[in-house]
Write a protein that binds this DNA or RNA. Structure first.
Length: 262
DNA sequence: ACATTGACCTGAGAGC
DNA sequence: TGCTCTCAGGTCAATG
């Protein structure tokens, strides 16, 4: 579930909490979520240091370790961060934790273990190595660039939006939200879209993602005009009130309004 | 070369 | 009550 807006919120959360706190110790509770380094190696690298900054690309959060590389966090489906004061009460599925000198703790909780933590040298190189497309909110992605990214693709528009190599940050939930706002059916083939459709999708994307991030990516906080609060069995279109249709696109549960999305 | 499908993971909820 | 089944979805490997 953590897509761009969720991870953007985690970035602002880390900015406001764990940044600039000295790390006393680390705890790896689940070693298979830590990639490319042992628990002991990680502990040695982080002990006594501070997190200097946080950046994001797509669904990845990068934490700069003062003078010693970066942590690359991916949240999979269920990953989340929690900064807790009572270190005896970490979240139930804490896989990794940083204990700070101030007595607080940053816990990486991930029920389904689909997330990951890696130590890397440089975020830009990581992005290149993983062949991630430009971040969906990057200044580099203007309408013309977005057209180029979509150009020549086959398959559904939903699959195209979710493909991280094309454009990074959009997953199942927000592809539905963007296409709802653009009034385009997720099943539509990219090759069938005209210039105006692409423009509408671009505008919807640049509208939806920041608003969702501001609202902590919480469905209950979304504007009533958004699909997300209704994105469940029996949900209704916030525009025309008709019952939403649920189907599968690209193997993922997909919600849309038959009347509003053509 | 590109698109699609299944596996991985775990807990929640449904159905019997 | 308690068991089994299905589903959720990000990514990657395998298949089309």
């Amino acid at each position: 579930m953590p897509e761009l807006p969720d991870v953007q919120y985690y970035k602002s959360y880390v900015d406001a909490t764990a940044l600039h706190q000295r790390i006393d110790r680390t705890e790896v509770r689940d070693s298979d979520m830590v990639q490319g380094i042992t628990a002991r190696g990680l502990a040695r690298r982080l002990k006594g240091r501070k997190l200097r900054s946080a950046t994001r690309h797509g669904k990845y959060l990068f934490l700069e370790v003062a003078d010693d590389g970066w942590l690359a966090l991916h949240f999979g489906m269920t990953g989340r961060l929690e900064y807790v004061q009572d270190t005896d009460r970490l979240p139930d599925h804490t896989r990794f934790a940083l204990y700070f000198h101030n007595g607080h703790c940053l816990a990486f909780d991930c029920q389904c273990k689909l997330g990951s933590i890696a130590v890397i040298d440089d975020p830009q190189r990581f992005v290149d190595d993983h062949q991630l497309g430009p971040d969906a909110l990057s200044d580099d992605v203007d309408l013309a660039t977005f057209r180029e990214l979509m150009d020549g693709r086959r398959g559904s528009v939903k699959a195209a939006l979710m493909k991280q190599e094309t454009i990074a940050g959009i997953g199942n939930v927000y592809s539905d939200e963007i296409l709802f706002r653009a009034r385009i059916r997720p099943t539509r083939n990219v090759s069938q879209l005209d210039d105006r459709d692409i423009r509408d999708i671009y505008r919807a994307m640049r509208q939806v993602l920041p608003v969702a991030a501001e609202r902590h990516a919480d469905p209950d906080r979304m504007p009533r005009s958004y699909l997300m609060p209704q994105r469940h069995e029996g949900g209704h279109c916030p525009r025309c009130r008709q019952g939403l249709t649920k189907t599968k696109v690209s193997g993922r549960g997909t919600y849309f309004c038959k009347r509003c999305q053509k």
